[in-house]
Each structure stands twice: as structure tokens, then as C-alpha cells.
Amino acid sequence: MTFIQKILHRPFFIKLLHWEYWSFHAVYTPIYLYWLWLCIKARSFFFFNTSNPTIKNGGFLMESKKDIYDIIPQEYYPKTIFINANTNKAKILSLVNEAALKFPLIGKPDIGMRGLSVKKLETIDDIIDYAQNSKVDFLLQEFIPFEQEVGIFYYRYPNETHGHISGIVGKEFLTVTGDGISNMETLLSKDKRFILQLPALQKAYGDTLQKVLKRNEDFLLVPYGNHARGAKFIDLSHLADEQLTSMIDEVCKNVDGFYFGRMDVRYNTWEELKQGKNFGIVELNGAGSEPTHIYDPKHSIFFAWKEIIRHWRILWKISRINHHKQNMPYMNFSSGIRMFKENSAYVKMISTE
């Protein structure tokens, strides 16, 4: 590796030269004026709360995942239980046994964001350890066994009978492939995407990263499709044909009061997904959803800004219709400021777990 290549493989330059790794504010600040214009048109800084009437704050921030699962038909998502923070070991084991949960499980904060504190749990000891380290209420959810995952962005105007898919993102999980010579840590240090995750992977796997994989042998490092945890996002929006749109529309119309957001789905095959077979909803996100297909490395920051603005306008229009046609009040200013403060404090709690 040349001197220039070594420089370009340093985390600072990887983030600087690839906008997909920029901070949230670095991406969004240049287009905040458009958001302000929508606020002025709505005569509210927090108009988004009316976008999804049955979800707290419209699903923008501080919404409970459990409350969202409660409005999704049970056949669409895996078995899930809610655990209060500081619940004792005996009670947790009782709840797990009562629900007859099957390993592996996923532990995640009830109010979560960007994959923070999400962990795969293989044993009872893993559950107890996760609970002891959690400062917040959390969910235990059976792991959906299907290998493929996509995020499907859906919206439906309240005065229309059919909804639309505005973006699809495919997710390549963080996986290292062996060459029969180098250990996993060496292989990881050669790939820019892996380099950014290396400190977390070293903490999670320790000496396991010294293992030499056979040639073409794959080792799954992060089993969920979160961009902040190293997954590569691929824009598959071109796959939103009539059959898939009809199926997703039917699912989403069965979620009471849901008009705008992204649904993360694990599935077996694409054809089965289009037919509504062999899939499970990992999460459903509301007004705070990003059109994550923008993070495909092939897209420029200008494409991203265009897509974000397009989705903001849809959000504004849906919120406006619910506000006027259903006489739903917008969130007042003090409540909106309190929401942001609560979110900031909450992020600090789950970021340190």
C-alpha cells in the first residue's frame, strides 16, 4: 500500500471523501431552509406529528417501538416482549418462558435510533447481561430467520385509497470473506467500510478476529442491516413494480393510522416477498424515517438532497391533510422543544450501553 493509499484509508479521510459517512447535521444543514419554508407554510415548526395519528409524535422522535408493534397485525412481525428497565432476573426469565421465545433473539431499546444498543442474543446469560447493561426499557424479539433485508419507504395520502413506494434500499450485512492466508483483522483493515467499524468489532469479537478463514469462507460480523453498524446500502427503488406496491399497500393499510414512513423487512426470496409470503417486519418507522436508498455509494450528495426534499414535501402534505380534514392539531412549540430535549438525553443513555 502506497503512502497516499495509507492516508486515504485513515478514518478521517474515509469520512471526508465519502458523504455517506458524514454526520447527520453535515448532510442536512444545507437544506434546512427548505424545512423552514415547510414550517412557515404549515404555520407550525412541528407539523409532522399529524402525519401518523396513531404513533406518538407521528414517529418523528421518542416513539415507542412496542406501541408501534401493537398497531401492526401480529402475523407481520416476530414474537416480541417488552421489558421494563431494572426488571429483576427472575421476572425476565418468567416473561421469556411465558412467551416461549426461541433463540436467537434481538435485544433493542424500546425507543431506539440508528441501531444503537441493538444486540443479537444467543443464550439466557446474554439476555441477563443485556438487561443489566440497559438503562432503558427494551424489547426482546425473535430473530427473523430470512437472510435478505430491505427497507421499503411507503406513503399514502389520507384522501387517497392507494399508497405508493417511494424508495427501496437493499442491505448487505457486514461480512468478511476469507482468503486462506490473512486473519480477519488484517482483511478488515484493507476495506474502508470495515475500517470504520474496526474498533467496535475488536471490542465485540476480541481474539476471534485473529482467525484465518478458508478461501471464500464468509463470516457474518453484524447480523442486522443498519448503516451505522457497517451495512452497505443499495438502491433497489427500480424494483417497486405494481405487484410489490399492491402487497405493501395492503400491509400498510392494515396498520391503523400509518401514512408515511419506512418499513424494514427481512424476507426469503424477492418473488415470495412480492406475493406476501415468507417475510417479517423488523421495524416500522414514521415521520423521522430517512429515504435510506440515498446512502447507496453510487449516489451523490445532490441526489440525496433531492430525495430528502421530495420526502419532506410528501410528509408536509400528508400532515396538512390530516390537520385540516381530520381537525388534528399540530404539536405546540413547547411540546416540540421538550421532545428534542428528551431525545437528546435519551440518545446519551443508549449510546453508552
Rank of each mutant, 00 (worst) to 15 (best):
S246H: 12
I318F: 13
F233S: 01
E160R: 15
K192L: 12
H164Y: 12
D264V: 10
H18T: 01
I321E: 00
S23D: 12
R229L: 14
I248Y: 04
L140M: 04
S44Y: 11
L93E: 06
Q132N: 15
D125K: 14
W316E: 03
F302K: 01
T29C: 04
L36C: 05
L93N: 02
F279I: 03
G115H: 13
E20N: 06
Q275E: 11
I7E: 02
K79Y: 14
T352N: 09
K211Q: 14
Y28C: 00
K66Q: 08
L284Q: 00
W19P: 06
T292N: 11
V347F: 15
P73L: 07
I318R: 02
I14W: 08
L116C: 03
S334D: 13
K135T: 07
K232V: 09
K325I: 14
G178A: 04
K253V: 08
L244D: 02
Y69K: 05
K171H: 07
T175A: 02
A85D: 05
Y157E: 06
L139I: 07
R156E: 06
G59S: 01
L196D: 03
A304K: 00
L105V: 12
E353F: 15
L116Y: 14
M328T: 09
E283L: 02
P109Y: 12
P145M: 08
F302H: 04
K108Y: 10
N327G: 12
S134L: 09
A26E: 11
H324T: 13
F82V: 00
H238G: 04
S117T: 08
I55F: 08
S94V: 10
V282A: 01
I309D: 05
E185D: 09
W312P: 01
Y154R: 06
I92A: 03
S246R: 10
F258K: 01
S289N: 09
T292D: 11
M247G: 03
M113F: 15
L209W: 15
L187P: 00
Y205Q: 00
A42L: 09
R114A: 12
G276H: 11
L239A: 05
K89C: 05
I55D: 05
G336M: 10
F47I: 01
Q275W: 13
I181Q: 08
H162P: 01
H164Q: 12
A231F: 12
Q326I: 11
V347C: 09
L121Y: 15
N57R: 09
E160C: 06
T175F: 11
T2D: 13
K79L: 10
K348I: 07
H293Q: 01
